[in-house]
Nucleic acid binder design. Structure first.
Length: 637
DNA sequence: GCATCATCGA
């Protein structure tokens, strides 16, 4: 009985809505101008439809809400923000027929959001006489996607409920991403269960994504495993989650399962799998993915991911061949190629690609210029770097931001112009952040300037008192200078704060399996043969003049111990593993979590000569291609 | 007729 009463009025309301909608559609346009306007809003072109608004106004005619909504959508696709404001002003002054007024306003709010004008969207929202679940969802979603407005999105959700509007699947799938802590996410998850929306595919993929982004892999996994029905996006979410959290093997495994479950290898999943390969330097797996990519020749995102994978795996031949063959290229393709070349020590080519890009009329973005400046700094091209930095605003309309300033400090610092770098920092218009000081600190270490290093480290610690990197670099600098007391003081400060130095790790792919080596750790099942091989290699390269450079051991220890520490650096273990297992004629590809030390660099150069093998090592920022006794970085890194 | 999830470059 009770429920009947509740249902009745709602059904009636729906009936009235339906009939009014029918009226809107069937009512013949009483005026030819209105008929033309309606037709233009369906067929376009947008400018012609827009141009009719003043005529309608002066004729005293009211446009129907359906056409106005279509016009707003056209505006998002083909128009500009000021066209949008024009429509908004027209609607505000002349209105729309009443039953559809709310929908028109909603589409205007959404339009402002899509143009990135959140403030305008909120202002319109505030002034609206009525709001429905769509209105609220549009705003909640906009806040959830804006930087630093996640809490506000959650507050809007509360306000929405207080206003008597119940969130639906659209709302939840938007707001889940705004949950910044596991607790909030768990509560929101519970809400979706309570209203029975947790099985909605949109909500489910948001849940998975949010759990993964907060680092709760098991949480994401369990939402996924409970799934009875899902779509390919849900699969993509879980695969992307594993790929992004660095579990490439898990991502691959899920990808195979997805195919087993009858889903084809779609673009989203392939892109995520490529990302996993990119992170793990699994070139062979990446090549297999490439075979699947062939049938999506129009998918730029996928091709860009493939391009990046080849660059990050150090295979510039593949990258270059793909880049030439790509049916379309956008600025991301170009930027990827420029950075890829620069990171692989081919700065001059990176700059030529940049020239080519400009000559093809593609406008660079701020990221492109980061790549260009990176190329300059890693090749010691101080003059070119200055030129691009100084002229980027005039030539491309891109104002130098933090990253570009950082590249300049790197450029000057690497080149040994430490005083100039410091002067640059003091004179720059932005407030120097810890990243900049860290760059200067790195340069100080490279050029063994302990005083300036100490200054830079103090600046970092002022901004970030618990910064591990600053303390490590500072103590390493002291150690480089054999100032053991200062080094020890710095280490002690770290220990007191409970900090530990991250151990060096290297990864290598062998027959689609990834092997990890940790410095000083001989627990790998093949350790015996690896140590044997290491001894053999050291014997061979000693004949070429190799002497362990114990000054790269940053602790005050007896020489034998230093040699042992050096010998078992993770990249040496990986190289020895590589030379025993690598295929004839194929390069040995290694990824590292820390920068390569000078001794390992010399070691790798000589091994490339004595064994006639190409060794490629990728560290967090760049690559070293060792061949025939030389490195692509020209010993400048 | 308006609002939702995943996938690319420093």
């Amino acid at each position: 009985m009770n429920s009947l009463f509740k249902r009745l009025p709602r059904n009636r309301l729906a009936a009235t809505r339906r009939s009014s909608r029918r009226r809107l559609h069937t009512q013949p346009h009483s005026h030819p101008l209105l008929a033309t306007f309606s037709r233009l809003c369906v067929e376009g072109p947008f400018p012609a439809a827009l141009a009719l608004l003043p005529d309608l106004a002066s004729a005293g005619l009211r446009a129907d809400p359906v056409s106005l909504t279509r016009l707003v959508k056209l505006c998002v696709r083909h128009g500009t923000a000021s066209d949008g404001r024009l429509i908004h002003r027209h609607v505000a002054a002349h209105g729309a027929l009443s039953p559809g007024g709310l929908v028109v306003s909603n589409s205007l709010v959404s339009m402002y959001v899509k143009f990135g004008l959140l403030d305008d969207a909120l202002r319109l929202f505030d002034g609206m006489p009525e709001r429905n679940v769509v209105t609220w969802t549009t705003v909640v979603s906009a806040l959830a996607n804006a930087d630093g407005k996640k809490d506000e999105a959650l507050r809007f959700l509360v306000a929405m409920r207080r206003d008597g509007v119940a969130p639906n699947a659209y709302t939840f799938s938007s707001v889940l991403g705004a949950c910044g802590t596991p607790g909030v996410l768990a509560a929101m998850h519970a809400s979706t269960v309570k209203v029975g929306l947790d099985s909605d595919v949109f909500v489910r993929s948001s849940l998975i994504d949010s759990y993964m982004k907060l680092g709760d892999l098991d949480g994401g996994r369990s939402v996924f495993d409970e799934m009875v029905t899902g779509d390919s996006v849900v699969w993509n979410s879980i695969i992307a989650g594993f790929a992004q959290s660095g579990d490439g093997a898990g991502a691959m495994e899920l990808f195979m399962r997805m195919k087993g479950a009858g889903f084809s290898a779609n673009q989203g999943a392939l892109t995520s799998v490529l990302r996993a390969c990119t992170g793990m330097v699994t070139l062979e797996v990446g090549r297999q993915v490439h075979a699947h990519v062939l049938k999506y020749e129009k998918d730029l995102i996928l091709h860009n991911a493939l391009l990046d994978m080849y660059c990050k795996c150090g295979s510039l031949q593949d990258a270059d061949a793909l880049f030439r063959r790509m049916p379309q290229r956008d600025v991301i393709s170009w930027s990827t190629m420029i950075s890829g070349l620069a990171q692989n020590g081919r700065s001059t080519e990176a700059l030529s690609v940049f020239d080519l890009m400009k000559s093809e009329g593609v406008a660079p973005t701020c990221i492109t210029l980061v790549g260009v400046l990176f190329a300059c700094s890693h090749a010691g091209l101080v003059e070119d770097g200055w030129y691009y930095f100084k002229s980027m605003e005039k030539l491309f309309g891109i104002r130098p931001e933090k990253e570009h300033h950082n590249c300049m400090v790197d450029l000057l610092g690497r080149a040994g112009k430490l005083d100039e770098a410091l002067k640059f920092i003091h004179e720059m218009s932005l407030d120097p952040d810890s990243v900049i000081w860290r760059t200067l600190l790195g340069a100080c270490r490279m050029h063994k300037n302990a005083n300036l290093a100490a200054y830079a480290a103090r600046e970092i610690l002022k901004l970030e008192p618990d910064d591990q990197g600053a303390r490590i670099l500072l103590s390493n600098t002291y150690a480089d200078l054999r100032q053991w007391t200062d080094a020890e003081k710095s280490w002690k400060a770290m220990r007191d704060r409970g900090m530990k130095k991250e151990p060096g790790r290297s990864w290598i792919e062998l027959e689609k399996q990834v092997h990890v080596f940790i410095a000083g750790d001989l627990s790998h099942p093949c350790s015996d043969s690896i140590v044997q091989e290491l001894n053999r290699l050291i014997g061979r390269i000693s004949a070429l003049g190799y002497v362990p450079q114990t000054e790269f051991v940053l602790q005050d220890l007896p020489i034998e111990q230093k040699e042992d520490l050096l010998k078992y650096h993770s990249e040496k273990l990986a190289i020895a593993f590589g030379t025993t297992h690598a295929m004839e004629g194929k390069p040995i590809r290694i990824m590292k979590n820390l920068r390569i030390c000078g001794d390992c660099h010399a070691f790798a150069k000589l091994v490339s000569k004595s064994e006639g093998k190409v060794v490629i090592i990728r560290d967090p920022v760049r690559f070293h291609h060792f061949q025939d006794g030389a490195c692509s970085c020209g010993d400048y890194w």
